[in-house]
Simulated assay, not measured.
Amino acid sequence: MREWLYEAGIGEARAALIEGGGIVRAEIEADDDGVCAGTIAEGRLDRILVPSRRAVIRLDSGEEALIEPVPKGVSDGGRLLVEIHRAALPEPGRAKLAMARVAAADAVPVAGPSLLDRIMTSGDPVRQLRAHEHDALEAAGWSELLDEAASGEAPFDGGGLRLSLTPAMNLIDVDGWLDPAALAVAGADAAARMILRHGITGSIGIDLPSANSKAGRLAAGEAVDAVLPQPFERTAVNGFGFLQIVRRRARASLPERLQGDPLGAAARALLRRAERTPGAGARTISAAPGVIARIEARPDWQQELARRIGSTVALRPDPRLAISAGHVDAETP
């Protein structure tokens, strides 16, 4: 049976589609993501970057977005109604602005669908989780999924995958010990499952072992088709074993989130652990100074955690700890 597990956490909402006891799709929606895809909002043209081609608009919410092409007849400061077709994307050192286009003539302002909205209309049942219940997300492999997203590495029978995020394309390298034809098919299947599991979109390249026959290359392409749901486009596997896939990009993937903002990801993961830590009395969160600083910068996170556990929260920076090595202790275990 397939079902979505949904958790309204502190700082983020989480969802995972479970099938056969494992996670086949997952997504995170952070509370600082900004305007989401599907939103129709009013704003003004703030500045033109490339005449007639690209400009920055400032939404009435204060957020900025790129618009391409520049709408005709709208000058600097001009008002317009736009639709967000891609949310902002985190990247190390900077973030890509959301992408917008002029809304339809009969459109009215409306918020885009949230993560919960989208999974509720997916056709699969949704189970909402509570912190006092059995941790069904963890039982399905949530921590392992986050480790995979952060490292970009994923094993499969016969080999392993390595995901590299670049500004132009997400690249998945396939390596292993099977014979090249079998490894190409197994690697294509595993790469497609990784793409689906982590919500990887945009332009994606898969570097497979060079297949020695046309039949082998066709089989590798068919392995991708059997896993990825439409819509997507792909090339054939070329003689060097390279396959390119293009999927519509509306929001950040899990690897983009965890690799683009590792401190924020670690902070939210610790808040989840603190909410589920058994015991009584104050909870002490110990973590690397950068992680603690992220939590300190959000008093609302600390207040919400204290409300949920019915106790106080203490933060302890420890420079000896790696970003991923934070822990939570209860006053009375």
Rank of each mutant, 00 (worst) to 15 (best):
E133I: 00
L243I: 10
S114T: 15
A150F: 01
D261L: 02
L228K: 03
A314I: 10
D175W: 10
D329K: 05
I245N: 05
W301L: 06
G77F: 00
L243A: 07
A55Y: 02
G123S: 06
L137H: 11
G21W: 11
F242C: 06
R298W: 01
S61Q: 05
F242D: 00
R251G: 10
R320N: 10
A280Q: 14
E222M: 13
S114V: 08
A288E: 12
H85C: 04
D207C: 13
S203R: 15
E7Q: 14
R53W: 02
V24R: 11
A219V: 03
R94C: 10
A37M: 05
E19I: 11
A184H: 00
P255M: 06
G199D: 03
V74Y: 01
A267R: 01
P255F: 08
M1I: 05
P255S: 07
L146K: 12
K72F: 12
P319G: 01
L315V: 04
V174C: 00
A226E: 02
I309P: 03
R234V: 04
R298I: 03
S253A: 13
L171V: 15
A65M: 12
T312Q: 13
G34K: 08
D106W: 07
R283E: 05
K96T: 05
G38I: 00
L17W: 05
A269D: 09
S203L: 15
D31P: 00
V56Q: 12
M169H: 10
R248C: 01
L243F: 08
E138Y: 06
P90L: 04
E64Y: 13
W4G: 02
I23G: 07
T235P: 13
D189K: 15
L129F: 11
A330C: 10
L321V: 09
Q303T: 13
P319F: 05
A107C: 12
A325L: 07
E64L: 10
P180M: 03
R58H: 06
I67V: 10
T284H: 04
I28W: 01
E138V: 04
A219P: 00
G241N: 12
H85D: 15
S324R: 11
D147L: 12
W301S: 04
L271S: 08
P155E: 15
A297G: 11
L315P: 13
A219E: 09
E68I: 08
A288Y: 04
L145G: 07
G326F: 04
E133D: 13
T201Q: 11
A55H: 14
A88K: 07
G93P: 08
G216Y: 00
R127A: 12
L271I: 02
L137C: 07
A95H: 14
V246K: 13
F240E: 05
L183I: 02
G158M: 02
A149K: 10
M99Q: 13
P51H: 05
N170W: 04
I292V: 12
A111D: 12
I40G: 06
S253I: 09
V174N: 03
D189S: 15
S311G: 14
R94E: 08
D173N: 12
R272N: 07
A8L: 06
T201H: 12
R86C: 06
L80N: 10
A88I: 05
G73I: 00
G239R: 09
L305R: 08
R58K: 14
A104G: 14
A219T: 08
R162P: 00
R130K: 15
R127I: 08
Q230D: 07
V237W: 00
E68P: 07
E12H: 11
T235F: 03
Q128F: 05
P229D: 13
D318Y: 09
D329T: 09
A154W: 11
